[in-house]
Design a protein around this nucleic acid. Structure first.
Lengths: 168, 168
DNA sequence: TAGAGCATGTAATATGTTACATGATTCC
DNA sequence: GGAATCATGTAACATATTACATGCTCTA
């Protein structure tokens, strides 16, 4: 449901066609959930079928036709219902990357350190993307602020483990 | 794949039947991914079909028969492949609970504060469960250490937002 | 003797990803 | 003229949840 909520929220701020929506999602490093292209199109269709959104055709020049979606009254109600529930409950986060840590001891500690070292580099890359965002933008998007802090913690934490492993 | 890895890892530490596996997962507050009962049974069947695990029948008294699973050589190889990949890459975490934060401004700030207040209570409950674990146990399970720290940060962070909202 | 626990599932549905299809247009 | 971009999808598969089914045993 969070994916639908995200789409509705974005459409509320301004009407969009699917392609545009996907661009926003891809180029935004601060998205706390994944949402692929084809799934976004599917959800748009589902939500239109359910009366949460409607579209009007639009054509600019000779470019392909676009479906510009906007949120209906019913969709607005639905959005706020979802929002309230999202904020007041605690949809449990998933940390697939943490599962392996409980089995670290099954590997020689120098190999474990090397593997985590390569993860660390990926995390640092993610962090930098967020860190390079203009401060204004980051602070007006609580989710990117959140992720920025999350990755910072992640880096500190990973570095700690690696050091401990290397000193063995 | 992390779910299969988790099951394999648990079975490596000692053989188990499905029911027991589910108990371990339910009673363990430090699991970083969700894994439901029926899904666990299904994954056990899938992995047996693929030759990663085998079972032997066991019966204690007149209790229902159990299938006690153990990891095959092939499954062991698979496990270590999965483990190495898990540690060296960065399977992206999902934060469904963060999506709503970007739309906080669409609600009156006193309502927003109240909603987050109720979330805070849930998070505090999770934190306490982990905090009450004997330190030894927590520290020998990096994932529960991880989650302990995560929830602590979460509490701090949520409290901060709530305060800011209330002062408006 | 009723209800909780033990033990393993199935069926229906929901959700999501990957790879591919299509056909135009603009840029180099 | 060929590649990248615009724009919207479909088909096949993979993954996961929910609710329900079954039947025995132990405990109060």
């Amino acid at each position: 449901m969070e994916k639908k909520m995200l789409i509705l929220g974005l459409l509320l701020s301004h009407d969009m066609h699917g392609y545009q929506l996907n661009e926003v999602l891809q180029h935004n490093p601060g998205t706390p959930i994944s949402l692929t292209k084809s799934n976004a199109y599917k959800l748009l269709n589902d939500m239109e079928r359910d009366g949460w959104i409607t579209h009007t055709q639009e054509q600019v020049g000779n470019r392909p036709q676009r479906r510009v979606y906007s949120v209906t009254e019913e969709g607005k109600v639905e959005f706020f219902r979802l929002l309230r529930e999202n904020l007041s409950s605690q949809p449990s986060p998933e940390f697939p990357g943490v599962v392996g840590l409980d089995f670290l001891h099954l590997l020689p500690s120098d190999e474990a350190a090397a593997l985590l070292e390569s993860r660390l580099q990926l995390v640092e890359k993610n962090f930098q993307q967020l860190d390079e965002l203009p401060l204004q933008i980051r602070q007006s998007h609580p989710s990117s602020e959140y992720l920025h802090k999350f990755y910072a913690n992640e880096i500190e934490w990973l570095s700690g483990i690696i050091k401990r492993l290397q000193s063995q």
